[in-house]
Design a protein around this nucleic acid. Structure first.
Lengths: 205, 205
DNA sequence: GGACTTTAATACCAACCGGTACATTATGCC
DNA sequence: GGCATAATGTACCGGTTGGTATTAAAGTCC
């Protein structure tokens, strides 16, 4: 539609959207959304407040953009692992290892969880994306469970929604505890115990 | 030491400390520590700010007092259950039932968890109390586990610190999820699955 | 009635918040 | 050069924050 690389009329744009979103993501992720103000964010990104408002419309737009980026670079790769054609236990171990890896790229904890836990700080756009990401995670876990059942890795006696909730909630828990500085070794052992009921049997409705 | 019911010199005190602490507890508990300001708290308690400062020294003192009350009326009764001479499974079920009871007195969620997750908002006194309560909870759970092992309710193959961490972390998780509005039925089922590894066997270091 | 002691609350402080009006600057077009 | 266009950032807005200086009020003691 529009000419691709033709210099448009008017003053050229210097505002680097991607860089600002990246800084916002890192900051919200590391310090939590309650721990950081829009003003402070502008300072760190070396961006003027009106510039930020022009680009994102406000705090809600910025948070939403940061969460979108988070979903793309963190959540998607994580959930993608569940679609591999591997034994359930292997994939689960790999995921747990990733979640409790102290040297993982990015801050500890999970931006989605932090946002979910501060609903009053969220604007409508961010809130909607939080809900969407949460339910699509549940869905991905449920599909993974169903495939594992077909494979015979998980007993069909286990309720799929319950098992999906277990996976979702326990993953969130691990990330939250990592952010709190809990011992990764202890967390892994605890998680292994919590998932023992899944990989063995038992636990219907 | 001091005369018990002699009217002291000076203007009589009208500041009701217990009432203010109670309101602070309810408010922090329900709205979260980040969701409420000292000013707003004064408004709700119908107390002047200097009055509050005189009594508590500042925000830190008030939070600390609220957390102290929380420990007394919520945490202690909960942990007290673990000292009863009952089969492990029974007590565990009772605790899980309590944690996921929608009609429980007080707001959903756990004040201790909320405070732990907003460390930057905490003053030194509150922070110290948070850490103390956390470690004494772990200790109480560990002792419970050890008694259950002696009873034969839990396999001695299970590591006590790991099992204690499981109990502590899963309890926190349940309360957090309840505060988020998750379905209590689903939470209970999920928790039953997570604790299956404890009550059956398996799960050493 | 004072003098003394203790508590109460108004009224203020500087700092920060999210959000915006507006003048300035840098470009393409002619 | 002059004009239209569009992105820029300074400087401000009203409101809130945690915290405090200060004066008024309510008692006992003599």
């Amino acid at each position: 539609m529009t000419d691709p690389d033709k210099t448009p009329i008017g003053r050229p744009k210097t505002f680097d959207r991607d860089e600002v979103v990246g800084i916002a993501l890192q900051t919200y992720w590391r310090e939590g959304i309650d721990g950081i103000s829009l003003n402070e964010l502008c300072r760190r990104a070396s961006v003027s407040k009106p510039g930020l408002y022009r680009e994102f419309g406000g705090e809600d737009g910025l948070m939403d953009a940061a969460l979108e980026l988070y979903a793309e670079i963190v959540l998607s790769p994580l959930l993608e692992q569940t679609t591999h054609d591997r034994p359930f236990g292997e994939t689960l171990t790999a995921i747990l290892e990733t979640l409790t890896d102290i040297n993982r790229s990015g801050p500890a904890g999970c931006l989605l969880v932090k946002m979910q836990q501060s609903p009053s700080r969220l604007g409508p756009a961010t809130r909607a994306r939080v809900e969407g990401l949460r339910s699509s995670a549940r869905l991905a876990y449920a599909e993974w469970i169903d495939r594992a059942k077909e494979r015979g890795d998980i007993s069909p006696d286990v309720s799929t929604p319950v098992a999906a909730a277990l996976l979702d909630i326990q993953s969130n828990t691990l990330l939250t505890q990592m952010a709190l500085g809990e011992d990764p070794e202890l967390l892994r052992a605890q998680a292994a115990l919590a998932f023992a009921g899944l990989t063995n049997s038992a636990g219907s409705t």
